[in-house]
Computed example of a mutant assay.
Amino acid sequence: MRLVLLGPPGAGKGTQAGRLAERFGVPHLSTGDLLREQVAAGTVLGRRAADFIDSGRLVPDALITAIVRGRLHSGRAADGYVLDGYPRSAVQAKALETILAETGTALTAALDLVVDEEEVIRRIGGRQVCLRDSGHIFHLRTAPPIVRGLCDQCGGELYQRSDDRPATVRDRLAVHAEQTAPVARFYADAGLLRTVDAEGTADEVTRRVLDTLGLAGVGGRR
Rank of each mutant, 00 (worst) to 15 (best):
R19M: 08
Y86E: 00
I124K: 14
I137Y: 12
G70M: 08
A11Q: 05
D51W: 05
P145C: 07
D164K: 11
K94T: 09
A188F: 11
A77M: 09
V59R: 02
L63K: 01
D54W: 11
E37S: 02
G85M: 03
A174C: 13
V183K: 14
I67S: 01
R71Q: 05
A106G: 09
I137G: 14
T105S: 09
V115T: 05
T201E: 05
G32Y: 09
D84C: 09
T180Y: 08
Y159S: 07
E199F: 10
V218H: 15
A188Q: 12
P27G: 03
Y81H: 05
D84P: 06
E22A: 15
L58V: 08
G32D: 14
L34P: 05
G200C: 04
V147R: 05
A62L: 14
S30K: 04
D54S: 14
A62K: 11
L173K: 11
V209I: 12
I137A: 15
G14F: 01
K13C: 01
L210E: 04
T65W: 02
D116M: 07
R208A: 00
T65D: 09
D133F: 14
A40Y: 12
V82T: 06
S162D: 13
L83S: 04
A106P: 00
S30H: 03
A167N: 02
T43P: 09
E199S: 12
D54F: 09
V82R: 02
D211F: 08
G18I: 01
A181D: 11
S74T: 06
E102R: 01
V4D: 05
K94L: 10
V120E: 03
R57W: 04
L83C: 03
H73N: 10
Q128Y: 09
S162K: 13
Q153W: 04
E118H: 08
G25S: 06
E199A: 11
V209D: 02
A40R: 14
D116A: 15
S162Q: 10
R127M: 04
T195K: 13
L107Q: 12
A106K: 12
A174W: 13
